[in-house]
Simulated assay, not measured.
Amino acid sequence: MESRRVIHGSGAIGRIGGRIALLTLAAVGCILLINVTHPQQVIEARQNMQQQDQPVTASSSEGLYRGQPISQLWARNLPEQAWLPDPQCRHFVTKFTRDNCLEVLLLASFPRSGNTWTRFLLEAASGLYTSSGGPNYIKYVKGESLRQSDENIRNYVKTQKGAELTQLGFIGETSLWTQGTTIAMKTHSFPEPWNATEAKINEYNWAPFAANTTRRAILVVRDPFKALISLKIYSKTQSVLNNDNDWQKLFQGDEWIDFAVYHANHWYKLNRQWVERTNMTHVVIYEHLTKNTMPELQGMLQFLDVQPDPDRMECVRRHLEGRAHNKKHDIVPNNAVYPLHLRGLVWSYIHQLNWVLKTRGYKPLPLDLYSFADEFRDIGL
């Protein structure tokens, strides 16, 4: 795990005119940053904060966010989640904060790289939800869909049957990251470009950054050989919980080769851009997270400005798996799944990303832990 700050002279590409940034209005509530297009949205934001400005009583020692007790930021009357099952830990719950209490950063990864498990760890350890998805870049710069109402969130949690992650306990799925009520936003999209020239390509598939804020992200990187296998299975199941099945037929023939070639390149480009298009990126190696979970989690919390409660962290240590863990399958990276030319191609992207990380001051990738390392690890770079 490692964080680096990169300062760019150009800001994010132009925000639409008339947007107003409201910074820390203590008399109203914990507005850290609101991006609005119309004066009416300012009024609505103030009214909403006035309705929610009473702190929630802590049920336990709750930890700190930027030196402030997290329980004082919690929203009232919204669903909460008890991630930690045993009686000694059940009182450590995860909640939304009031609007704009948190400066949300992006939790980015190539799909099937441990993002959902990382979200569980962050939520259980901090007591703060993570979010996922929209609004997308186009809606965001137009000022659309800036928040979900409390009633909509409650109704969604009560009635939603098709949202798998919500059913598993990731209730932050119901909130928009622009509300500032969650500690991080999951994304598998590319980061928003720095300038208009870069913005001409694929303008919808971006994860936007809030205006007038430092671009910060946590990036989770996993062995692409294993991520590609998991992604191929997910493409058939559309579920974070793998079903028991014989998956061998998915990894045969030209369809699999084409899939792997395309997504290996995508793995490289996505990870590279999350290093290059942020001011501060905290890189988490999935293989390190699985082997040394608590130190890696502590590093992420520090990057998030969270000082966790020690008793809560002890409970997390005893319940590291969470709920959204895949069933075992029999597909492993071997010579049948990855023929020689495909192994060489994927490793070319691994070495390219490793070079990018090293040249920007990060620790290198753990090449020894990646599939087929004996063949391709040492190429003299």
Rank of each mutant, 00 (worst) to 15 (best):
P191L: 05
P224M: 09
L231N: 07
Y286D: 02
R46I: 14
P295I: 02
V104Y: 00
A124F: 05
A27Q: 06
T116W: 05
T290E: 12
I350P: 07
T24M: 05
I331Y: 04
N292C: 05
A264W: 03
V28D: 01
I31A: 08
A45L: 07
H282K: 05
R272P: 03
H351G: 08
V56Y: 01
T159L: 12
Y370Q: 04
P87D: 14
G67R: 03
Y362V: 10
F92V: 06
N334Q: 09
R222I: 08
A227S: 15
P208N: 07
F92W: 09
I218D: 01
Y204R: 13
W194P: 00
L33F: 06
E62T: 03
G299D: 10
V316K: 00
G14K: 11
Y338K: 11
Y129L: 04
K186L: 11
V141I: 15
A199Q: 10
D368W: 00
M280N: 11
V104S: 14
R5N: 06
L381N: 09
N100P: 02
R76S: 15
G253K: 07
L146F: 08
D150E: 12
D150H: 12
Q238H: 15
Y349G: 00
G253Y: 06
L33N: 10
Y349C: 11
Q273N: 13
T116D: 08
Y268T: 04
Q40H: 09
T118W: 01
V346A: 08
I350T: 09
A58E: 03
Q179I: 02
G29M: 06
S3K: 05
N202G: 12
V275G: 01
E198L: 14
F251K: 05
E164V: 13
L128I: 12
Q88D: 14
Y349P: 00
P208I: 07
W274Y: 04
L165S: 10
E144C: 05
K358S: 10
H288P: 01
K232G: 11
Q72M: 02
Y286G: 03
R76K: 14
D374R: 10
R90K: 15
T37Q: 12
L106W: 11
